[in-house]
Design a protein around this nucleic acid. Sequence first.
DNA 1: TCAACACATGAATAGTTGCTCATATGTTTA
DNA 2: TAAACATATGAGCAACTATTCATGTGTTGA
Lengths: 103, 103
Amino acid sequence: MLDERHPEMVSDEQAQNLAELFKALGDPTRVRIISLLIGRELCVNDLTVYLQMGQSAVSHQLRYLRNMRIVKRRKEGKTVFYSLDDDHIEQIFRQTLKHLEHH
Amino acid sequence: MLDERHPEMVSDEQAQNLAELFKALGDPTRVRIISLLIGRELCVNDLTVYLQMGQSAVSHQLRYLRNMRIVKRRKEGKTVFYSLDDDHIEQIFRQTLKHLEHH
DNA sequence: TCAACACATGAATAGTTGCTCATATGTTTA
DNA sequence: TAAACATATGAGCAACTATTCATGTGTTGA
């Protein structure tokens, strides 16, 4: 059933990049952080309150998300505000939620 | 900056489900399997050839994807054909690829 | 300037994951 | 029925991950 003529949608490099991004979204804490940041800015302390988690854990995840360019930060005095880096992630969330509804 | 009036897009349960699905997509081997299955059926052996991986590894991943209802199987004699369970995953892939292009 | 505050970071660790190896199950053909 | 074939599965293991703990950095106000 090997069919060399079949067009493959993603190259190996694209597969790698897709997997990296999905992995970033593949953790409940990070999903909750992202969903809390949809449509607004929040500082680290707000996130720890919403998430009911240690400040360190939250900061570690925020660094991860920042390295992946999923969130960005803005400093204002002592506090640091985080927000989504672009709105594509929100689109992906919406589409995926739609998928989950149908199951 | 806590704002109780802000509508949260996803509940904790939805966050859990989203994370579970994204985690399933968050591995290069599984991404490649899914992308190979877009638009066609393939048997386990074909996948091992394309992926250049051991048959056992591929079967394990297929079981995982099947448990997640991302792929389904169809038996025909000795061989088992796998295909995508629905086309939502393809949509999610396309949207995410678009996101990656813009970075 | 010093204490309090907000956040970041490195090390350590328990839990998870993806692969390999060996073997089992089910099917076809000689 | 036995051998060959296609796939599935359990155990084991090395690599990775998410959190906690302790501490560091930068900022503000007394």
